[in-house]
C-alpha cells in the first residue's frame, strides 16, 4: 500500500513538530547549563531530498532527526541557547502545527462526508 497519502504525510509532519517542540523545551530548560549546545530538528530537508529522488516516500523511514548545530555563537560558559531564538522557533512551530491539524481535520471531514453520503 502506498504510504504517501495526505494523512501519512501530515502525520510525519506532526511527528516532526512534536519532536521540535520537545527540542525547544529542552533548550529552554538548559538555558543556563554550562556547555549545553542547543538541539534542533531536521525534517524539511530530508523530506525535500526524498521527494527529489523521485522514489516513493515511506513516511515510516522518513523520520525527523535531532542534531546539534555547530555554527551558532557560544556564550562564555559554552552554552549557545538564546531565549529569543527559541521563542521564534516556538511560534513557527505552532503555525505549522495549526496548519497541519486543520488540513488533517478538513481531510477527515471529507471522508466523513463521503461515508455519510446516503444518509
Amino acid at each position: 500500500m502506498s504510504k504517501t497519502g495526505i494523512v501519512e504525510l501530515l502525520e510525519a509532519g506532526l511527528k516532526a513538530e512534536a519532536l521540535r517542540q520537545r527540542a525547544v523545551a529542552n533548550n529552554v530548560a538548559n538555558l543556563q547549563t554550562p556547555g549545553y549546545r542547543r538541539l534542533d530538528v531536521k525534517f524539511e530537508e530530508l523530506l525535500a531530498n526524498a521527494m527529489e529522488s523521485g522514489e516513493e516516500i515511506d513516511t515510516d523511514e522518513l523520520g525527523p532527526e535531532l542534531y546539534q548545530p555547530k555554527n551558532t555563537a557560544v556564550n562564555p560558559n559554552g552554552n549557545d541557547v538564546n531565549l529569543e531564538n527559541e521563542v521564534g522557533q516556538l511560534v513557527k512551530n505552532s503555525f505549522r502545527h495549526k496548519a497541519f491539524i486543520r488540513i488533517l481535520s478538513k481531510k477527515y471531514s471529507q471522508i466523513d462526508q463521503a461515508i455519510n453520503l446516503n444518509r
Binding site: 531530498n49 521527494m51 529569543e84 521564534g88
Partner: peptide, 22 residues
C-alpha cells in the same frame, strides 16, 4: 530543492530582539 521557511518576519523580529538584548 531549496527550503524556504516562509516565516521571514519571525526570524527578522527575533534578530532584532537578540541585537537589542546584546
Amino acid at each position: 530543492m531549496r527550503i524556504e521557511n516562509g516565516f521571514g518576519p519571525i526570524d527578522i523580529a527575533v534578530s532584532g530582539l537578540r541585537a537589542q538584548n546584546k
